[in-house]
Structures are given as structure tokens and as C-alpha cells.
């Protein structure tokens, strides 16, 4: 019963107004309420930063993917059939602006000899460094890589998983390596730990500095992180 009264907001008219609820019982429930309240508010402070982690960590992915410098291409075998150069298991290795190595493998790469520059990739599997000790793996069923325009048009579902637990799922994604932008007008879902953002359209602009979620943006932050935070408090981790 006591907790109910704590929830009920007692109005204490201003001191010079009517009699304030100064009975000791009144004060106790108020104090108990405040105590519970402050613990909850501390959790509140933890839950809100969870929003920040998700947002902050979501960028690291793109800034590297979008800025390859040199690319070297080698492949196991190749053959020309009906005017198309087919390469088996091509791998492309290169370095990002920050001089971290990245690699892009595909099951097959088919280059239509008539239109140079456009290479159809199947079974894309790329590993991209995010920082010296974290990286992201991109896998997609297929896509069209245009090295003239420096664009990768992934027209099939693709997933992006980072080593620190963030997963982004796309139905399609058009990556403009030159401008460092990514656009998709299909739904996207980004999940990390207990938080999840979905929207119907998504863009990465300004070389990964701006993320734009549009149309039915839904974000959910699960309390699970707060729980582990709560128990960790006991271990003296500052819950401030």
C-alpha cells in the first residue's frame, strides 16, 4: 500500500497557504517515494546515454567503408563467356584514409566487356577496419560496382556487423564512395546491445558525419543494459 501513496502526488500548498502535510507518516512516505525516485532517476540517466551509444557507434561504420584509397584486385580464375569476363573469388584489398587495410571478397565478379567499369559482384564479403582494434564485416548477396563512378549499388539484402556488436540490416544500399554517401529508400534496421533503430529510408551524408533516418523512425532502448549497469553498481562502478 505504501508504494501507492508514494505514487500519488500530494499537493503541499505553498507554506503560507493551507496546512502542509507535515505529519511524520506523510513525511516518511514522501521520503520513501523520493528515495525510490532518485534510484529510478539514476537509471534514467543510464538509459538516456544508451541512446547516445547507439547513435555514436553507428557512424564509425560508414566513414571507413566510404573512403577506400588504393584498390588492388586479384582473382583465382577467369574466363570469358558471351562477352563477359567472369572472375572467380576476386578479392580486392586496399587501404583507408587512416591507412588501415580492408578487403572485399566476392564469390564471382562478372564484367560486361561492352560497358567497362561496371562489375557485377555476387556474394560480397568485405571486412572494413573501423579503428585499430574494431572492424566491420559487410555481406551482401550481390551488387554492381562501378569503378568509374566509384559507386557500389547493392540491390539485394545486405548486413553490416561490427566487432563491437552493432548490426545494420539493409534491403538495398547505394554507396557513393566518391562522395562518401550511402542512400537507401528501403527499410533499414540498426541494432546494438539493447537498442534498435528502424526507419523506412536512410541516408549517410557528409562522409559519414550525418545520418538521416526518415519515415517512421522508431527507436527502442531496452532496459537490459541498465540492469547490468545496476548490478555493476554494487561492484563500485560509478553509477553517478
Amino acid at each position: 500500500m505504501a508504494t501507492d501513496t508514494a505514487h500519488y502526488a500530494q499537493y503541499r500548498p505553498s507554506p503560507h497557504g493551507g496546512a502542509a502535510d507535515t505529519s511524520s507518516q506523510g513525511r516518511e512516505t514522501a521520503f520513501a517515494g523520493a528515495l525510490r525516485h532518485s534510484r529510478r532517476v539514476r537509471l534514467f540517466k543510464i538509459l538516456l546515454p544508451a541512446l547516445a551509444i547507439l547513435l555514436a557507434s553507428a557512424f564509425a561504420i560508414y566513414s571507413y567503408v566510404l573512403s577506400p584509397t588504393g584498390i588492388s584486385v586479384d582473382f583465382v580464375g577467369s574466363g570469358i563467356s558471351d562477352g563477359k569476363l567472369v572472375m572467380a573469388n576476386p578479392t580486392m584489398n586496399g587501404y583507408t584514409k587512416e591507412n588501415l587495410p580492408y578487403s572485399m571478397k566476392a564469390k564471382r565478379a562478372i564484367q560486361d566487356l561492352s560497358l567497362t567499369g561496371a562489375i557485377k559482384l555476387e556474394g560480397i564479403d568485405a571486412k572494413v577496419p573501423l579503428s585499430s582494434d574494431t572492424w566491420a564485416v559487410i555481406s551482401a548477396d550481390g551488387g554492381l560496382y562501378d569503378d568509374a563512378g566509384q559507386t557500389l549499388d547493392i540491390d539485394t539484402p545486405a548486413t553490416f556487423t561490427t566487432s563491437d556488436g552493432l548490426t545494420a540490416k539493409f534491403k538495398s544500399a547505394f554507396i557513393d564512395m566518391e562522395a562518401g554517401e550511402l542512400k537507401t529508400s528501403d527499410p533499414v534496421e540498426i541494432v546494438q546491445g539493447g537498442s534498435r533503430i528502424t526507419s523506412d529510408r536512410f541516408q549517410v551524408l557528409e562522409r559519414g558525419d550525418v545520418f538521416l533516418f526518415e519515415d517512421r523512425v522508431r527507436m527502442k532502448i531496452e532496459p537490459r543494459e541498465a540492469k547490468s549497469e545496476e548490478t555493476a553498481d554494487g561492484a563500485g562502478k560509478s553509477g553517478n
Binding site: 532517476v41 526518415e214 522508431r218 532496459p223 541498465a226
Partner: peptide, 26 residues
């Protein structure tokens, strides 16, 4: 003076945010 119980955000319930647009400028 009053007690605004508005901030009763308990730790064991998820928070949901919805909007038409979200722009994140890291």
C-alpha cells in the same frame, strides 16, 4: 510547490522513441 511525478522512468521498462525524421550529426 508540487511533486511532479513525471520523471518516474523506471529502469525495468524499455523506452520507445518515434518521430518522422531523425538526423544525427556526429
Amino acid at each position: 510547490e508540487s511533486r511532479f511525478t513525471g520523471l518516474k522512468l523506471s529502469g525495468d521498462q524499455p523506452i520507445q522513441i518515434e518521430s518522422d525524421k531523425l538526423e544525427v550529426r556526429d
